[in-house]
Amino acid sequence: MQWVDTVIQGVLLGGLYALFATGLSLIFGVMRLVNIAHGDLIVVASFAALAVAEGFGMHPLITLLAVVPLMFGLGYVLQRGILNLTLGKDILPPLLVTFGLSIIIQNGLLEVFTADSQKLKAGAIETMSLQIFGGISVGVLPVITFVAAVLVIAGLQLLFFRTMLGSAFRATSDDPDTARLMGIDNRHVFALAMAVSLAVVALAGVLLGVRTNFDPSIGPGRLLYAFEAVIIGGLGSLWGTLAGGVILGVAQSIGARIDPGLQILAGHIAFLIILIVRPRGLFPRAVD
């Protein structure tokens, strides 16, 4: 029964990883951009929530009302102002520019918030739990996180497949030149994609901050989890990304159960095994 518990906790942890990964998967899908600063932007959202929560005495989950629009705007400006300049045939500029941004963000956060470990204090909800079967209980927050991940991905599926903007995302991803002939301004569409990506990142950052301690140095680790979930799930598939997050969460949870020092290592090793066995991930997109 303990193992069942371990797996269930891992699945719920996977919800958080899926939230980390969704934004990364989305921008790769739309513009083939791999944002190395993605993890650091998650931490930016956590600190933004901290600042808002402490500044206005708000509950951390209420700060979402401010942090999500803030990150949405940041994403638009970041893409329009900097990252659009890096897109092209050469993979080096986007990679190195986002890598540079990652270092800039980490050190900027250090400068403003110091290296101290922080946490978003959510009060009673942090310790609330639900009894399910066989004496296993699950935390309310992890459940909320998992449900949020499912809702976000369902929402993005609707956005992608039921709206004109979604068609524009997919058309631009297929063939940016022809998309322009349709009157689609690629720079604007890419900026909107990054804005949506960072809106999801905002949610991920707040839920991360409520769940665990964070400090300016943890961004790269979150990037790696996000990246692993995306690759495990298969590039460009949002539901695959959720599956990838869950597999990573379960692997980490099992690793931690064996030895707390093995948690992260177990996740990485699960990723590498899947990479060797199924290089294109579990649910690769049909059209590539």
Partner: peptide, 28 residues
């Protein structure tokens, strides 16, 4: 053998994961 399965930017992050695996392994 592992990271050459990834292309471009994904290769970059893949090499990073492997480096982390080495780091965490030596810590054990």
């Amino acid at each position: 053998f592992v990271v050459f399965r990834l292309r471009g930017a994904y290769f970059a992050i893949g090499t990073w994961v492997v480096a982390e695996v080495y780091r965490l392994s030596f810590a054990q």
